[in-house]
């Protein structure tokens, strides 16, 4: 069910938002749009299959602990 929702959402976003941007022929805009759209789609589609990508919280925690709590 979640997978269908994700696919439908991206389908409508591509049809109604991405295609008009393609018509602008602005390469930079298309690149940024495509980059974020693809990255988010990969994460969400994997999530719908029950695969959770690693998040940034562990890395942030490690860096903060190294800087602020390393002497303890």
């Amino acid at each position: 069910m979640v997978m269908v929702i994700v696919i439908l959402l991206y389908f409508f976003v591509i049809i109604f938002d991405f295609l008009p941007i393609l018509k602008d022929r602005d390469k930079k805009q298309v690149f940024v749009y495509g980059l974020f759209l693809t990255a988010s789609f990969c994460v969400l589609i994997l999530f719908s299959f029950g695969i959770r990508c690693p998040g940034p919280s562990d890395q942030i925690t490690a860096v903060v602990e190294k800087i602020f709590f390393s002497s303890k």
Binding site: Y33, L37, S40
Partner: peptide, 19 residues
């Protein structure tokens, strides 16, 4: 022009941000 992909990235990030 990039509002939709950014918003979907925020959703994706919110999913993976905590276990």
């Amino acid at each position: 022009k990039i509002l939709f992909p950014m918003s979907l990235s925020a959703v994706a990030l919110s999913i993976i941000i905590y276990k």
